[in-house]
């Protein structure tokens, strides 16, 4: 077993003729939070989808040193990989509880009661709404449900795509607290965020993505102090004034 839970080597993804991700490599040590920051359209979501197997890619993705090859999404889920996508992708006409149950699909019904207990302990709001249809939830509750559903599959590596997207500042704080809590519980996390400041605060290590490539990387605290990063991602309006 290597010390990196996930190792991505020279990964490229193309939509038709356009290469959205070009020869990207990254590695996530066990129990770490690694973040990828970058502008809209830089290829961050594409990268996550490729790691998850939702998009076909060239290059290598290895989980615990084991190459995933061209294995299907469900095989990656079974290996403990889990993606909370930018658009949440909930089952909108099904109840909150059914959404959570399906999160435990890989274990079958027997894993449901224990999983529900854990998730409800972390997100008491979801327990209050367990009979409600997922489509009627507010934005923050949707994100909690998406994360709760992911936790039901007991992931070893959780990938969060823009978890603060469209959420009120207070809920964003709550979500980030949960992210740090999960890290304490031993879950490795790959975090993609447009809210670069928050992401760099919680992460151990960070990559900067521009036009499909990594242009910088380093310990999160170092990047947060880097002049170029501050200019491009932490200041308002690109810092021309």
């Amino acid at each position: 077993m290597s010390d990196a839970i996930l190792k991505v080597s020279n990964l490229s993804v193309a939509y038709g003729r356009v290469e959205a991700v070009r020869g990207v490599s990254l590695s996530i040590p066990h129990g770490n939070i690694v973040t990828v920051i970058g502008a809209n359209g830089a290829g961050k979501t594409t990268l996550m989808n490729a790691i998850m197997g939702v998009l076909p890619s060239v290059g290598e993705v290895a989980l615990d040193g084991k190459p995933m090859g061209r294995s299907l999404v469900e095989a990656r889920v079974n290996n403990g990989l889990c993606l909370v996508p930018e658009k949440r992708e909930l089952f909108s006409t099904m109840s909150v509880e059914d959404n959570l149950r399906l999160g435990a699909y890989r274990f079958g019904s027997s894993a449901v009661p224990g999983g529900l207990r854990d998730v409800f302990a972390r997100f008491p709001r979801l327990e209050e709404r367990r009979k409600q249809e997922a489509g009627t939830l507010s934005g923050g509750e949707r994100q909690m449900l998406a994360m709760g559903r992911a936790l039901m599959s007991r992931p070893r590596l959780l990938m969060l795509d823009e978890p603060s997207l469209g959420l009120a500042p207070l809920i964003v704080k709550e979500i980030f607290h949960i992210v740090t809590d999960l890290r304490k519980a031993g879950v490795s996390i790959l975090l993609v965020e447009q809210n670069a400041r928050a992401a760099l605060q919680v992460a151990d290590y960070a990559y900067v993505m521009e036009l499909g490539e990594f242009t910088m990387s380093g310990p999160a605290a170092e990047l947060a102090a880097d002049k170029r990063v501050i200019e491009s991602y932490l200041g308002l309006g690109g810092g021309r004034h």
Binding site: E74, E89, S92, R101, S109, S153
Partner: peptide, 20 residues
């Protein structure tokens, strides 16, 4: 679980893939 998974696939195919 299987029945719910079928329903879930109908509601959101990508969501269903992501839970395995």
């Amino acid at each position: 679980m299987m029945g719910k998974a079928l329903r879930a696939t109908a509601v959101n195919r990508l969501g269903a893939r992501l839970v395995g």
